[in-house]
């Protein structure tokens, strides 16, 4: 393998940093929104599943929930990738870990669509 020159810039890094911050803000807003909505709808929602299903029958609730899940997935991907970049030095170890993490997150994303829609 060609030995990479020291100080070589990958030409990216900014995008991931920005995405992590934007998704964090999305998650924060969602938490505030959902806590507020649950507080308002406290009388309507009981602990039984039918009232929850009724609550999530509103498209707007599903859309907001779905955006939140996608924000969590993207945020988690950047965060976990950061940890792997810090601690896993072996290139092939990284590729394997990245693959497993991506599969897990992809599965979670598909499952979230299945649950919400």
């Amino acid at each position: 393998m060609v030995k990479l020159r020291k100080g070589l810039s990958a030409g990216h890094g900014f995008n991931a940093w920005l995405q992590q911050r934007v998704t964090a803000v999305v998650m924060l807003l969602s938490i505030i929104l959902f806590v507020g909505l649950f507080a308002l709808a406290g009388k309507v929602i009981n602990s039984d599943i039918t009232s929850w299903q009724q609550y999530f029958s509103y498209t707007i609730v599903r859309v907001v929930a779905q955006i939140t899940v996608l924000a969590v997935i993207l945020h988690a991907w950047i965060g976990v990738r950061d940890i792997v970049m810090d601690y896993v030095k072996c290139m092939y170890g990284r590729v394997i870990l990245y693959t497993l993490i991506i599969l897990w997150l992809l599965g979670s994303t598909i499952y979230s669509f299945y649950v919400l829609w």
Binding site: S9, G11, H12, M85, D86
Partner: peptide, 14 residues
Amino acid sequence: LDNLNDPYRLFRCH
């Protein structure tokens, strides 16, 4: 800025 736009060079700062 191009020189710093890299997952490591700048963005390893946590």
